[in-house]
């Protein structure tokens, strides 16, 4: 029984690891090590509730744990990251490929948002979740989640204005 449970869990983790890792990376603003820590911590929590959520919805559960843990870890002082007025220097296009440059720019812009704004934007535009599920993952009313997403997108419009050009 326990063996079957463990193998089911391993199967889920192996199949969803890549997507969950990318979600974690977007939630923390691009830091690969923090993203891996966040995902490991969330999967450990999932292991202890696996019999309850395995047949129902393991991915929404782990997503919710990640969103809330990301917001908590952003408040820790030791992380030492501060918002700045100007965007940090990014690698020039000649050094790296265009895809990597675009990803770096996106992550640098996401870091500028507050944790809740970042989570709302990521859940809305990467996970394609409706507002109700975004609110549930954030643990706030739908109106608040909508407000976080709208403010986050408005800020990203300023930060990524030169990357995403408006349609004429």
């Amino acid at each position: 029984m326990a063996q079957a449970r463990a193998s089911e869990f391993d199967e889920f983790v192996a199949s969803r690891w890549s997507a969950l890792m990318h979600l974690a990376r977007l939630l923390v603003g691009g830091d690969r090590h923090r993203a891996e820590d966040l995902l490991q911590e969330s999967l450990v929590k999932l292991w202890f509730v696996w019999p309850r959520v395995a047949d129902d919805a393991p991915e929404p559960y782990v997503r919710k744990v990640m969103v809330r843990a990301a917001a908590r870890s952003s408040r820790r002082r030791w992380w030492g990251e501060r918002p700045v007025e100007r965007m940090p220097e990014v690698a020039s296009a000649g050094d790296v490929s265009a895809d990597v440059a675009e990803r770096s720019r996106l992550e640098a812009a996401l870091v500028q948002l507050s944790p809740k704004q970042r989570a709302a934007v990521v859940l809305r535009y990467y996970q394609d979740l409706p507002e109700g599920q975004v609110a549930e993952a954030l643990g706030c009313p739908v109106g608040t989640a909508r407000s976080h997403a709208a403010r986050g997108v408005a800020r990203l419009r300023q930060l990524l204005a030169d990357v995403i050009e408006p349609v004429q």
């Binding site: 690891w17 890549s18 997507a19 990318h22 675009e102 997108v153 995403i164 408006p166 349609v167």
Partner: peptide, 21 residues
């Protein structure tokens, strides 16, 4: 709108394959 569509595309394109080793 156009910006939101581009934002969603950037988020999806940024995904790197990361195997569970």
């Amino acid at each position: 709108d156009h910006f939101e569509r581009q934002l969603a595309r950037m988020m999806h394109d940024a995904e790197e394959p990361a195997p569970f080793g």
